[in-house]
Design a protein around this nucleic acid. Structure first.
Lengths: 135, 135
DNA sequence: CAGAATCCCGGAAGATACTG
DNA sequence: CAGTATCTTCCGGGATTCTG
């Protein structure tokens, strides 16, 4: 399977809130949790962007991964892909309504991460120090 | 590097909100985004749990991954590890205050995923159908 | 019971080159 | 510019075995 493609279409749950839902929700969280997907969604928060524009903004993503990530987001209905048949070709990516509804919880998470960054860094440093003085 | 261990301690950012912050926040989001970490945090939401208890609750995680996941969470200061020197040995894992503060944004995300599950499944099915009828 | 250590494989992802 | 195709590398993570 290619990166960015997440399973979860087969075996729909029959009962509301069955144990199986967990796995399905898991496939959704897998996409949300994906490092690149999150970054792309954040980059698209302010409006449509072009392929290479996104690539530059993110910096550190390969064209391959960006392609797969965008495909995945498109597949999940979070992003639309608009092709302008010009020369040179131009493709715009934009959040759908669903994608926009995701901004809020994602930014809450981002805010949390940003707010507690110092704490976490400190905890990591402390842990690694204790770790290092053992042997 | 072992699974569960996430870099991000080296090269602290000098200016608030510099471009480098993105990468650091990324390391935090990487932990949050981690499938197993999220599940473990959710399992610990209601109070402390033992190792095998967590293993059973999650079901499908290997002892190896559970170990690494818990180590990572401990390293980030999200979870405490308490050893009872009894026979047989017993170890409790519990969310720290920081870990508990994470429950809210995480559950918001979970709620979003659950709420939009049908939409997403539909989008996936539609996408895969169009995909399949091309060749 | 709660891990640590070792082995091993498949898939995720980078680099590069080609195309419409 | 916006991809696709291919090759290769690497490491996430499962299965198993061994301790305290």
């Amino acid at each position: 399977m290619e990166p960015g493609h997440i399973e979860g279409t087969e075996a729909a749950p029959k009962h509301a809130h069955s144990g199986q839902d967990c796995r399905l929700v898991g496939t959704v969280l897998a996409r949300i949790g994906d490092k690149w997907s999150v970054l792309v969604v954040m980059m698209l928060a302010d409006g449509p962007r072009r392929f290479n524009e996104l690539k530059r903004m993110i910096g550190g993503i390969s064209q391959r991964m960006l392609t797969f990530t965008l495909r995945g987001l498109e597949r999940d209905g979070l992003v639309t892909r608009t092709i302008f048949p010009t020369i040179p070709p131009r493709v715009d990516y934009e959040l759908t309504e669903l994608g926009r509804s995701l901004r809020e919880p994602i930014q809450a998470l981002g805010a949390w991460a940003f707010a507690h960054l110092p704490e976490i860094q400190e905890a990591r440093a402390r842990f690694d120090r204790r770790e290092g003085e053992k042997p």
